[in-house]
Amino acid sequence: MKNSTKFIIVELEGRKIRIPQGLTVIEALWDTGYDVKRGIGCLSGLCGACTVAFIEKGSTKVKFGLGCQKVAEEGLNVIMMPCFPSRAARYAMEAMAHPLEELGAHYPELYTCNDCGACNVCPEWINVAGVMKFAKDGDYEAAASRVTDCIMCGLCASRCPRSIAPQYVALYIQRALARERPFPPNLAKRLAQVESLAYETEWSRIAAMGDDELKALCAAMEGL
């Protein structure tokens, strides 16, 4: 251990302990002997497995974040809260003619939202309350365009006094919208070409080529 290492005192899962400075919450847990597996995923802030709740020194407010991204500072009091329960509706979207119209049937609690804003704790900085308002008002495009970055960590759901799971509501809308969009013309054209065996002559030409001929063909294509 380097002599220059600075130490800080933090409270990890209710245990006051001295740790080296600069560790993330996950690293601090590992360092102090917690064999954390349930709340670990990508370690890059993308999978949403390692949700944490914390109070910073001198603050009066409980905050939320991701354990692999939150760097521990002096006086931090933090617990992990992975896998917070949220209700996900079960549905077969392909069986619905207009899934958007059935949103209310699958997530009726959405319409009890009174826009309290408690869900605005998103580590991806999504304005969750805003998205829910769009969803409630039927502006689905506006809702969907704001949740591309949702990592499904469920922190918003953990704060909702009405037990709405905004991450699942948003996902439903994203999927439903995608299904209602017209089929992309460029893909339709390509599929038709593949189906009518438009590339067969080219394939058989290539199949007969040795590696050197193929390399020459590649070089020619790169030039185009």
């Binding site: 999927r175 439903a176 919208l177 995608a178 969009r181 017209p182 089929f183 992309p184 460029n186 893909l187």
Partner: peptide
């Protein structure tokens, strides 16, 4: 096509192409 069918929303251009 399968991904589109199950509701994956790929980015589109103005004409609705992928």
């Amino acid at each position: 096509r399968w991904l589109l069918e199950i509701g994956v929303d790929f980015d589109r251009d103005e004409e609705g192409n992928l």
